[in-house]
């Protein structure tokens, strides 16, 4: 148990230090980006992309946990799904809000109409709202029916995550696509270092926060069962 605490803290600390290193790299080490209308706002990229990717990761964890719960009624898998959904909402907020700032600086125009007409933005917002519904639904006493229904709702990420991720490739969208395209190789090396650092930092932060959230959930269960035992 003691080892687990040390590892978790080390992961959290490393994640935080990498966030600071990404900040240094993005804001200080590299100058204003070329070929952008808003070269300073472009630096949001170093946090926007990693938070977006971690949002997908978190919601995929919800899908995995929900699937496992529906398969073998694993309470651990259900807890992973519940806690990961919460983190997905936090990271999703970061990605959507930071993207909105960047979009306003780079593209201009009306924010609401952008969200309604750009398929990447629309599907990502829909996915995020869907998991808010999941989060709200789970804030009630946890009976097996609630857990089952939540698992079914959690499985919707199986459609929503790929739909959001692939929407900018196949549907109407201004959102740039980098991974798996010719643009990936043209990514400036300095940009690449900051991006990879940011992704690693956010994955470590996600693991750290998920671990803490899982512990809280576990403690809550223990307290609840003790209370029931006292009655």
């Amino acid at each position: 148990m003691k080892y687990k605490w040390e590892l978790r803290e080390a992961v959290g600390l490393l994640g935080f230090l990498l966030v600071l290193a990404t900040l240094y790299f993005g804001l200080i080490s590299t100058g204003p980006a070329k070929f952008f209308t808003a070269p300073n706002a472009q630096k949001i990229f170093y946090f926007h992309v990693p938070s977006g990717l971690v949002t997908y990761l978190a919601f995929l964890m919800v899908v995995g946990g929900s699937a496992l719960y529906l398969y073998n009624q694993s309470h651990y898998a259900d807890r992973v799904a519940k806690c990961s959904a919460e983190l997905g909402i936090v990271f999703g907020f970061m990605s959507l809000a930071s993207g909105t700032f960047w979009m306003k600086a780079e593209w201009g125009g009306d924010i609401a109409s952008r969200f309604l007409t750009d398929m990447r933005l629309a599907t990502t917002l829909a996915m995020w709202i869907l998991y808010i519904a999941y989060f709200v639904y789970r804030r009630q006493p946890e009976t097996s029916i609630v857990k089952n229904n939540a698992a079914v709702l959690g499985m919707s990420g199986l459609i929503m995550v790929p739909l959001s991720y692939l929407s900018s490739r196949f549907l109407r969208s201004h959102h740039p696509v980098i991974v798996g395209t010719a643009d990936q190789d043209s990514l400036d090396p300095s940009l690449r270092v900051g991006l990879y650092m940011g992704i690693l930092a956010f994955i470590l932060l996600y693991s750290f926060l998920l671990n803490i959230r899982m512990q809280i959930e576990e403690m809550d269960k223990v307290i609840f069962s003790r209370k029931m035992g006292n009655l």
């Binding site: 300073n40 949001i44 946090f47 907020f93 970061m94 930071s98 700032f101 306003k104």
Partner: peptide
């Protein structure tokens, strides 16, 4: 302004 807005959100 937009850069600091985006960073603040995080």
């Amino acid at each position: 302004f937009y850069l600091w807005g985006g960073m603040t959100v995080f």
